[in-house]
Design a protein around this nucleic acid. Structure first.
Lengths: 123, 123
DNA sequence: GATCCCCCTTACGAAAAGGTAAGTACCGCA
DNA sequence: TGCGGTACTTACCTTTTCGTAAGGGGGATC
Protein backbone atom coordinates (compact mmCIF):
# COMPACT_ATOMS: atom_id res chain seq x y z
CA UNK A 1 0.00 0.00 0.00
CA UNK A 2 2.93 2.27 0.57
CA UNK A 3 2.82 4.79 -2.23
CA UNK A 4 5.95 6.59 -1.23
CA UNK A 5 9.14 4.65 -1.06
CA UNK A 6 11.12 5.58 2.04
CA UNK A 7 13.26 7.85 -0.11
CA UNK A 8 15.49 6.62 -2.85
CA UNK A 9 18.66 8.63 -2.46
CA UNK A 10 20.42 10.50 0.28
CA UNK A 11 19.28 13.85 1.62
CA UNK A 12 20.97 17.05 0.69
CA UNK A 13 20.37 19.15 3.77
CA UNK A 14 18.04 19.69 6.70
CA UNK A 15 15.45 21.54 4.68
CA UNK A 16 15.42 18.65 2.26
CA UNK A 17 14.82 16.22 5.12
CA UNK A 18 12.18 18.46 6.64
CA UNK A 19 10.27 19.07 3.44
CA UNK A 20 10.30 15.38 2.66
CA UNK A 21 8.02 14.47 5.53
CA UNK A 22 5.48 17.22 4.84
CA UNK A 23 5.34 16.98 1.08
CA UNK A 24 1.97 15.48 0.41
CA UNK A 25 -1.23 17.21 -0.43
CA UNK A 26 -2.79 17.01 3.02
CA UNK A 27 0.07 16.45 5.44
CA UNK A 28 0.39 20.02 6.58
CA UNK A 29 -3.29 20.14 7.35
CA UNK A 30 -3.26 16.80 9.14
CA UNK A 31 -0.45 18.10 11.29
CA UNK A 32 -2.35 21.25 12.08
CA UNK A 33 -5.58 19.43 12.81
CA UNK A 34 -3.90 16.96 15.14
CA UNK A 35 -2.06 19.73 16.88
CA UNK A 36 -5.14 21.75 17.68
CA UNK A 37 -7.30 18.81 18.69
CA UNK A 38 -4.59 16.56 20.11
CA UNK A 39 -6.65 13.42 19.42
CA UNK A 40 -8.75 12.72 16.36
CA UNK A 41 -10.47 9.69 14.93
CA UNK A 42 -10.29 8.75 11.28
CA UNK A 43 -13.76 10.00 10.43
CA UNK A 44 -13.16 13.25 12.28
CA UNK A 45 -10.07 13.92 10.23
CA UNK A 46 -11.91 13.05 7.06
CA UNK A 47 -14.60 15.57 7.88
CA UNK A 48 -12.08 18.21 8.84
CA UNK A 49 -10.09 17.85 5.62
CA UNK A 50 -12.95 18.47 3.28
CA UNK A 51 -12.19 17.02 -0.10
CA UNK A 52 -9.76 14.33 0.98
CA UNK A 53 -10.43 10.79 -0.17
CA UNK A 54 -10.26 7.91 2.27
CA UNK A 55 -7.40 6.42 0.33
CA UNK A 56 -5.27 9.52 0.53
CA UNK A 57 -6.04 10.01 4.19
CA UNK A 58 -4.99 6.52 5.22
CA UNK A 59 -1.97 6.69 2.95
CA UNK A 60 -0.79 9.95 4.42
CA UNK A 61 -1.44 8.79 7.96
CA UNK A 62 0.55 5.63 7.38
CA UNK A 63 3.46 7.54 5.94
CA UNK A 64 3.42 10.00 8.81
CA UNK A 65 3.29 7.12 11.25
CA UNK A 66 6.29 5.55 9.55
CA UNK A 67 8.07 8.89 9.78
CA UNK A 68 7.40 9.00 13.49
CA UNK A 69 5.09 12.01 13.34
CA UNK A 70 1.76 10.55 14.36
CA UNK A 71 0.75 7.88 16.81
CA UNK A 72 -1.96 5.43 15.88
CA UNK A 73 -3.94 3.73 18.61
CA UNK A 74 -6.34 0.97 17.65
CA UNK A 75 -9.05 -0.11 20.06
CA UNK A 76 -10.10 -3.74 19.72
CA UNK A 77 -13.75 -2.84 19.58
CA UNK A 78 -16.56 -3.22 17.19
CA UNK A 79 -17.30 -1.01 15.40
CA UNK A 80 -13.58 -0.26 15.07
CA UNK A 81 -12.11 2.75 16.76
CA UNK A 82 -8.79 4.29 15.84
CA UNK A 83 -7.34 7.38 17.42
CA UNK A 84 -4.60 9.50 15.91
CA UNK A 85 -2.39 11.91 17.77
CA UNK A 86 0.92 13.68 17.28
CA UNK A 87 4.12 12.24 18.62
CA UNK A 88 6.72 14.48 20.19
CA UNK A 89 8.46 14.78 16.84
CA UNK A 90 5.21 15.61 15.13
CA UNK A 91 4.60 18.35 17.64
CA UNK A 92 8.04 19.90 17.23
CA UNK A 93 7.67 19.68 13.46
CA UNK A 94 4.43 21.58 13.68
CA UNK A 95 6.15 24.26 15.72
CA UNK A 96 8.93 24.41 13.16
CA UNK A 97 6.33 25.01 10.47
CA UNK A 98 4.93 28.01 12.33
CA UNK A 99 7.09 30.63 10.57
CA UNK A 100 6.36 29.08 7.19
CA UNK A 101 2.65 29.27 7.92
CA UNK A 102 2.99 32.91 8.85
CA UNK A 103 4.90 33.60 5.65
CA UNK A 104 2.21 31.78 3.69
CA UNK A 105 -0.49 33.89 5.28
CA UNK A 106 1.41 36.99 4.24
CA UNK A 107 1.61 35.63 0.74
CA UNK A 108 -2.12 34.96 0.65
CA UNK A 109 -2.78 38.51 1.75
CA UNK A 110 -0.36 40.33 -0.49
CA UNK A 111 -1.27 38.37 -3.59
CA UNK A 112 -4.97 38.27 -2.82
CA UNK A 113 -5.08 34.53 -3.36
CA UNK A 114 -8.20 32.52 -2.96
CA UNK A 115 -8.67 30.68 0.29
CA UNK A 116 -11.19 27.99 1.07
CA UNK A 117 -14.09 29.44 3.00
CA UNK A 118 -15.41 28.01 6.25
CA UNK A 119 -12.10 27.35 7.93
CA UNK A 120 -9.23 29.77 7.91
CA UNK A 121 -7.05 28.45 10.68
CA UNK A 122 -4.42 31.00 11.48
CA UNK A 123 -1.84 28.23 11.71
CA UNK B 1 7.11 25.67 -20.73
CA UNK B 2 5.36 26.13 -17.44
CA UNK B 3 5.11 22.68 -15.93
CA UNK B 4 3.21 23.74 -12.87
CA UNK B 5 -0.09 25.44 -13.33
CA UNK B 6 -0.39 28.45 -11.02
CA UNK B 7 -2.49 26.34 -8.67
CA UNK B 8 -5.86 24.99 -9.59
CA UNK B 9 -7.94 25.48 -6.48
CA UNK B 10 -7.94 27.74 -3.47
CA UNK B 11 -5.50 27.43 -0.60
CA UNK B 12 -6.47 25.92 2.69
CA UNK B 13 -4.20 27.79 5.06
CA UNK B 14 -0.90 29.58 5.36
CA UNK B 15 1.15 26.40 5.55
CA UNK B 16 -0.54 25.25 2.38
CA UNK B 17 0.41 28.49 0.65
CA UNK B 18 3.93 28.35 2.01
CA UNK B 19 4.57 24.75 1.07
CA UNK B 20 3.23 25.36 -2.42
CA UNK B 21 6.09 27.63 -3.41
CA UNK B 22 8.84 25.36 -2.05
CA UNK B 23 7.47 22.04 -3.23
CA UNK B 24 9.78 21.03 -6.02
CA UNK B 25 12.78 18.80 -5.90
CA UNK B 26 15.41 21.53 -5.84
CA UNK B 27 13.63 24.66 -4.65
CA UNK B 28 14.74 24.49 -1.07
CA UNK B 29 18.32 24.14 -2.17
CA UNK B 30 18.06 26.95 -4.73
CA UNK B 31 16.75 29.16 -1.99
CA UNK B 32 19.57 28.22 0.30
CA UNK B 33 22.21 28.67 -2.37
CA UNK B 34 20.93 32.08 -3.38
CA UNK B 35 20.70 33.15 0.22
CA UNK B 36 24.29 32.30 1.06
CA UNK B 37 25.80 33.67 -2.16
CA UNK B 38 23.31 36.46 -2.79
CA UNK B 39 24.01 36.41 -6.53
CA UNK B 40 24.53 33.37 -8.69
CA UNK B 41 24.70 32.71 -12.38
CA UNK B 42 22.92 29.82 -14.04
CA UNK B 43 26.01 27.67 -14.46
CA UNK B 44 27.04 28.32 -10.88
CA UNK B 45 23.72 27.09 -9.61
CA UNK B 46 23.92 24.06 -11.85
CA UNK B 47 27.29 23.15 -10.39
CA UNK B 48 26.14 23.76 -6.84
CA UNK B 49 23.07 21.56 -7.21
CA UNK B 50 24.90 18.47 -8.30
CA UNK B 51 22.55 16.18 -10.15
CA UNK B 52 20.07 18.76 -11.36
CA UNK B 53 19.27 18.83 -15.05
CA UNK B 54 19.26 22.08 -16.96
CA UNK B 55 15.61 21.66 -17.71
CA UNK B 56 14.62 21.32 -14.07
CA UNK B 57 16.81 24.19 -13.03
CA UNK B 58 15.33 26.64 -15.52
CA UNK B 59 11.85 25.38 -14.77
CA UNK B 60 12.23 25.85 -11.06
CA UNK B 61 13.84 29.25 -11.49
CA UNK B 62 11.00 30.39 -13.71
CA UNK B 63 8.39 29.22 -11.24
CA UNK B 64 10.17 30.88 -8.37
CA UNK B 65 10.42 34.04 -10.41
CA UNK B 66 6.69 33.89 -11.09
CA UNK B 67 6.11 33.40 -7.37
CA UNK B 68 8.14 36.50 -6.63
CA UNK B 69 10.94 34.68 -4.84
CA UNK B 70 13.88 35.20 -7.17
CA UNK B 71 14.97 38.07 -9.34
CA UNK B 72 16.35 37.36 -12.79
CA UNK B 73 18.66 39.86 -14.38
CA UNK B 74 19.69 39.35 -17.99
CA UNK B 75 22.70 41.17 -19.40
CA UNK B 76 22.50 41.86 -23.12
CA UNK B 77 25.90 40.39 -23.72
CA UNK B 78 27.34 37.62 -25.68
CA UNK B 79 27.92 35.03 -24.40
CA UNK B 80 24.73 35.52 -22.44
CA UNK B 81 24.93 36.34 -18.78
CA UNK B 82 22.07 35.87 -16.38
CA UNK B 83 22.22 36.55 -12.68
CA UNK B 84 19.81 35.22 -10.12
CA UNK B 85 19.22 36.60 -6.68
CA UNK B 86 16.59 36.46 -3.97
CA UNK B 87 13.87 39.05 -3.73
CA UNK B 88 12.78 40.38 -0.38
CA UNK B 89 10.05 37.75 -0.25
CA UNK B 90 12.51 35.03 -1.14
CA UNK B 91 14.73 36.14 1.68
CA UNK B 92 11.98 36.15 4.28
CA UNK B 93 10.82 32.78 3.03
CA UNK B 94 14.27 31.40 3.56
CA UNK B 95 14.26 32.74 7.09
CA UNK B 96 10.87 31.17 7.67
CA UNK B 97 12.33 27.85 6.58
CA UNK B 98 15.08 28.05 9.17
CA UNK B 99 13.23 26.15 11.92
CA UNK B 100 12.17 23.49 9.45
CA UNK B 101 15.78 23.06 8.39
CA UNK B 102 16.83 22.68 12.00
CA UNK B 103 14.11 20.12 12.57
CA UNK B 104 15.26 18.27 9.46
CA UNK B 105 18.81 18.19 10.71
CA UNK B 106 17.59 16.68 13.95
CA UNK B 107 15.72 14.09 11.97
CA UNK B 108 18.81 13.21 9.95
CA UNK B 109 20.77 12.76 13.13
CA UNK B 110 18.28 10.77 15.15
CA UNK B 111 17.38 8.45 12.30
CA UNK B 112 20.91 8.16 10.99
CA UNK B 113 19.78 8.98 7.47
CA UNK B 114 22.13 9.18 4.58
CA UNK B 115 23.30 12.60 3.53
CA UNK B 116 25.09 13.55 0.35
CA UNK B 117 28.79 13.96 1.00
CA UNK B 118 30.82 17.00 0.00
CA UNK B 119 28.35 19.63 1.03
CA UNK B 120 26.49 19.52 4.30
CA UNK B 121 25.27 23.08 4.61
CA UNK B 122 24.03 23.62 8.12
CA UNK B 123 21.05 25.49 6.76
C1' DG C 1 38.27 23.20 -37.42
C1' DA C 2 36.94 21.19 -33.39
C1' DT C 3 35.59 21.57 -29.14
C1' DC C 4 34.00 23.89 -25.17
C1' DC C 5 31.12 27.25 -22.67
C1' DC C 6 26.87 30.15 -22.07
C1' DC C 7 21.66 29.67 -21.15
C1' DC C 8 18.47 27.82 -22.34
C1' DT C 9 14.28 25.07 -25.35
C1' DT C 10 11.93 21.05 -27.10
C1' DA C 11 10.39 16.34 -27.44
C1' DC C 12 9.74 12.04 -25.44
C1' DG C 13 9.00 8.84 -21.76
C1' DA C 14 9.09 6.95 -17.09
C1' DA C 15 7.84 7.44 -12.44
C1' DA C 16 5.26 9.29 -8.80
C1' DA C 17 1.29 11.35 -6.92
C1' DG C 18 -3.39 11.73 -6.64
C1' DG C 19 -8.52 10.79 -7.82
C1' DT C 20 -12.65 7.52 -8.38
C1' DA C 21 -15.14 3.80 -7.32
C1' DA C 22 -16.05 -0.39 -5.43
C1' DG C 23 -15.54 -4.02 -1.89
C1' DT C 24 -14.86 -5.78 3.18
C1' DA C 25 -16.77 -7.09 7.78
C1' DC C 26 -19.35 -5.99 11.44
C1' DC C 27 -22.84 -3.34 14.07
C1' DG C 28 -26.98 -0.32 15.42
C1' DC C 29 -31.24 1.64 14.00
C1' DA C 30 -35.77 1.85 11.84
C1' DT D 1 -34.57 -5.72 5.25
C1' DG D 2 -32.19 -2.05 4.13
C1' DC D 3 -29.45 1.84 5.27
C1' DG D 4 -25.81 4.31 7.52
C1' DG D 5 -21.59 4.41 10.25
C1' DT D 6 -16.67 2.50 11.49
C1' DA D 7 -11.93 2.15 9.19
C1' DC D 8 -10.02 0.84 5.86
C1' DT D 9 -8.20 -2.00 1.08
C1' DT D 10 -7.91 -2.76 -3.76
C1' DA D 11 -7.97 -1.90 -8.62
C1' DC D 12 -7.81 1.25 -12.23
C1' DC D 13 -7.03 5.58 -14.34
C1' DT D 14 -5.47 10.47 -14.98
C1' DT D 15 -2.46 14.13 -13.86
C1' DT D 16 1.74 15.91 -12.38
C1' DT D 17 6.52 15.67 -11.89
C1' DC D 18 10.99 14.46 -13.09
C1' DG D 19 14.70 12.61 -16.13
C1' DT D 20 17.13 11.97 -20.68
C1' DA D 21 18.65 13.43 -24.79
C1' DA D 22 19.11 16.44 -28.36
C1' DG D 23 19.43 21.04 -30.57
C1' DG D 24 20.61 26.17 -31.03
C1' DG D 25 23.33 30.31 -31.85
C1' DG D 26 27.10 32.73 -30.92
C1' DG D 27 31.88 33.36 -28.97
C1' DA D 28 36.35 31.95 -27.08
C1' DT D 29 39.99 28.57 -26.85
C1' DC D 30 43.28 24.92 -28.54
Amino acid sequence: MRAKSPRSGPYICGIDAGLDVVSGKWKGLILWELDTHSVRRFAELRRALSGVSEKMLTQHLREMEADGLVHRKVYAEVPPRVEYSLTEHGHTLNEALGPLGAWGNDRLRREGLEVTPAEIPQG
